[in-house]
Each structure stands twice: as C-alpha cells, then as structure tokens.
C-alpha cells in the first residue's frame, strides 16, 4: 500500500461522460492484482472532502495503470478535468482482489455497465493462466459497452445484452446468464456491476451450483479498514468492502 502523488499520463473520454484516466505510479502498477482498487483524492478542497475508490482497470506498461471514471458528481468532474502532467494523489493498491484458484480451468465473467472496470484486468490474468474465459456483458446501450473489443479478444465467447436492444439481447444480462452458464460450464463466475444485478447473478450461480466471486462497490471514507463505514451485511456480521473485499465469494456474504 502506497500513498503517491501520481502524474497524469492521459485522460481520455472514451464515451460520453466516461473517462479512462492513466496515472504514472510504478509501485501501484507493479503490485496491483485484478479486483484491487485505488483511492483517489479529488483535489484539495473543503466542499467535497473524501477520496473516491476506483478499481484498477488495467496496468499500462510496467509503470502506469488506468481507471475508468464515470462523471456523477463534483469529485468525478474534477478527475475528468485532469490533463497530462497534472497530478492526482492516490492510495493503493487496496483491498482483496479476485482469487484465481490453481485448479481453475473455466471461468465466466459477468460485466454490468461500469462494472466492467476490474474485469479486463482479470480476463488478461486468466488468459495468462490458461483459463478458458467466457463473458456475458450488459449495458444500457451499445455505446456503453465498454471494453467490448478487449473482452472479445480475451474470451472464447462473448454474449451481450443492452437495455435498448441496440446490441445483442434486449433486456438484462441476467436474462441470458443461465444459458451461458450451461454452455460454458464454468468452475467460477466472476461478476461486477450494479447491486441488483449482482444479487441476481449470485442467485443464478447458486442455482447452477457454481461458485461466484463479485466485486462490490460502496461509499468509503478511509479505504484502509479503519473507519468501518463501507460495510456490507454478511451472514451474521458486517464485512468491510474496502479491506475484507471489495471482492467477495458469495458464500461469505450469504447471498
């Protein structure tokens, strides 16, 4: 874990209001594992004071990494306005990422909207480990299918759903998940996306007796496990999304 003032390498609006921010931070790029996150300070100001957590999206070479940022408020607006040579203070890499078991042979990735953020990095790692990867991906519309080409390249089959039907199945990713699980017969499902989607993915995976790991999102203050502000309800206690997660096995959560 490091606290670094990182130089901006690039900040690109990849689709409307979604930016890919590349930061120069060799230690973070080197140490990050898929599913881990960085905690970004959104400028020094006294109006919106807390850092914002972002999944490490991909490492870029050996010295840099990027994050996907959707502009939703003042903090993300500030980040979106960074230009090369500006700097961003970050803490990371943080949290527990995805667990890739040694005996893992087949995996199914489920990405919903911005939830794709940690999953390309994961797919790359899985490909390195010679795991057969299948992907199901959903978004509001075709232009919101982020990283589609990367995931397509890294996976054996990619199935798509969009809310408006502009690409693939018209409807939810969970409408087509069962069929894809049957076809891919994965040892594990890796998912990230909106909470309602994750809940549904957990249920479907359970129905197919497939283990399932998911990366959760939460509002955070410290990001390092100190404040207990970002907890998620598990079976009989609360777990810290920042340091027990953000990736959880659905069994730990009792989902």
């Amino acid at each position: 874990m490091h606290q670094i003032t990182a130089r901006v390498v690039e900040n690109k609006e990849i689709t409307r209001d979604i930016f890919r921010l590349t930061l120069f931070a060799p230690a973070v790029a080197r140490e990050s594992k898929p599913g881990q996150f960085v905690h970004l300070q959104c400028g020094v100001n006294q109006s919106y004071i807390l850092r914002r957590p972002f999944s490490v999206h991909q490492t870029v070479g050996v010295d840099a990494f990027d994050v996907l940022i959707r502009v939703v408020g003042d903090g993300t607006k500030w980040l979106a306005a960074r230009r090369p040579k500006d700097s961003v203070n970050l803490i990371g890499p943080l949290g527990r990422g995805f667990t890739i078991g040694a005996e893992l042979k087949r995996a199914l990735i489920v990405a919903g909207g911005m939830g794709v953020a940690p999953l390309v990095f994961l797919a790359l790692k899985l490909a390195e480990e010679k795991v057969k990867v299948y992907t199901v991906m959903g978004a509001a519309s075709k232009d919101q299918l982020l990283d589609f080409m990367d995931l397509k390249r890294l996976t054996r089959k990619i199935a798509v759903s969009t809310d408006d039907g502009s690409q693939g199945h018209k409807g939810l990713v969970t409408d087509i998940l069962g069929k894809e699980i049957e076809e891919a017969d994965p040892d594990v499902v890796f998912a990230c996306g909106p909470l309602a989607m994750l809940r549904a993915v957990a249920g479907i995976s359970r129905r197919y007796s497939t283990s399932c790991q998911m990366s959760l999102e939460a509002r955070m203050a410290c990001g390092v496990g100190a404040c207990l502000g970002c907890t998620v309800g598990a079976k009989d206690n609360y777990l810290k999304v920042c340091s027990d997660g953000p990736v959880f096995d659905t069994q730990e959560l009792g989902w």
Partner: peptide, 8 residues
C-alpha cells in the same frame, strides 16, 4: 456488530 449500512 454495528449499524446497518449505508453508514456513510
């Protein structure tokens, strides 16, 4: 166990 989320 603390309070139910959201807590922040």
């Amino acid at each position: 166990s603390g309070n139910p989320p959201p807590r922040l």
